[in-house]
Amino acid sequence: MSQVITQGTALHGPAAAPAHGPTSAVLPHAPARGSAAGPGARHAARGALRRFVTAVAVVSAALATVSAAPAAASATPTTPLGPTASARGEDRLTVTVSGMGSGVDGTYEVTCRPGRGSHPDPEGACAAVERNTGWGRDAFAPPRQDAMCTMQYGGPATAHVTGSWAGRPVEATYDRRNGCAIDRWDALVPLLPAAGSGTGSATGSATPW
């Protein structure tokens, strides 16, 4: 019985302390490690923070410079170039008319934006072509072959238009032999002379082009 008690005392006495040694050894060294590394870690953290703040300042300055550039560019007055000036170039047409009578028959030049040339009404001529031009619409398209046209005769007048419009070459012929041809001609008045213009026309009267 005394032997058991002796062993028990050995287990729970000072000799048993090594069993708890690893736990006791870690606890006293933790503060020592913290106190030794603390100043260096704080110094490194402060250095990293200064570098970060400097980098942010540099990036912010660069972004401010980039943002200011478009504003300065927009503030600079410029002369706008519309699609007609930059993409279409110059629209120039030559119109040759015959069969309308004296004072109208002849060849005429017209240049648009602004309208000018030997044509009697260059501005009106340009406007007539412009209103017949659009997406899917060709002002100088040939007549449809399958169109149903009235048997209406508009006289012997003919017209030939050449040149360029909307960046495309123009080569078109007009007459007034039936209702479809008359409608196609009239759509381009005053690029083409109106019916009754000149003397010796189908109506025998002289009217301004």
Rank of each mutant, 00 (worst) to 15 (best):
D91G: 04
R184Q: 08
T96P: 00
T203N: 02
T173Y: 14
A85N: 06
P120T: 09
L192C: 09
G200Q: 10
G106N: 08
A48D: 06
V170W: 04
T54L: 13
R116G: 15
A68E: 13
G154L: 05
G21T: 02
P39N: 11
R168M: 12
A157W: 00
Y108H: 11
M148I: 15
A87T: 13
Q152N: 12
G204T: 02
G115T: 03
T76V: 05
S2Y: 00
T203S: 15
M148H: 08
A206I: 02
D183W: 12
R46T: 06
E90V: 15
E130R: 15
A159D: 02
G47S: 15
P122L: 02
A187I: 07
P39G: 10
D105L: 06
V129A: 08
P80N: 07
H119P: 09
A64M: 11
G163Y: 08
L192E: 03
C149S: 10
L63W: 12
P143K: 02
A10P: 03
A128N: 09
R33K: 07
P18M: 10
A194V: 00
A37M: 14
G204L: 04
A36Y: 13
T150K: 06
T96L: 06
V66E: 10
R92T: 13
A85W: 01
N132I: 01
A71E: 13
T84L: 07
F140C: 03
C180Y: 04
G40T: 15
A15K: 06
S74V: 07
T76C: 05
A37L: 13
T207V: 10
N178S: 13
S197D: 04
V95Q: 03
G198C: 07
P169N: 11
A157G: 09
V95R: 01
T54R: 14
T6C: 05
P14W: 10
L81K: 11
P169F: 07
E109Y: 02
A69V: 11
P31T: 10
L93V: 07
V189S: 03
T158I: 04
T9A: 15
A16I: 06
P39Y: 04
R184S: 04
A202F: 07
T65C: 12
A141C: 10
G40H: 13
G99C: 08
G179M: 06
T199N: 08
S118Q: 04
A172N: 10
A69K: 05
S2G: 13
A202C: 01
A125P: 06
A202S: 08
T6V: 13
L49K: 03
T173P: 00
A17Q: 12
A141T: 09
R131A: 11
D186F: 00
G198T: 00
R50S: 15
S2K: 13
Y174C: 01
T150W: 10
S67K: 09
D146S: 12
T111V: 15
A64V: 06
C112W: 03
G89H: 07
G204V: 03
G21K: 05
V95A: 05
G200C: 10
A139L: 06
R50G: 14
T199H: 04
P190W: 05
Q7I: 03
G124T: 00
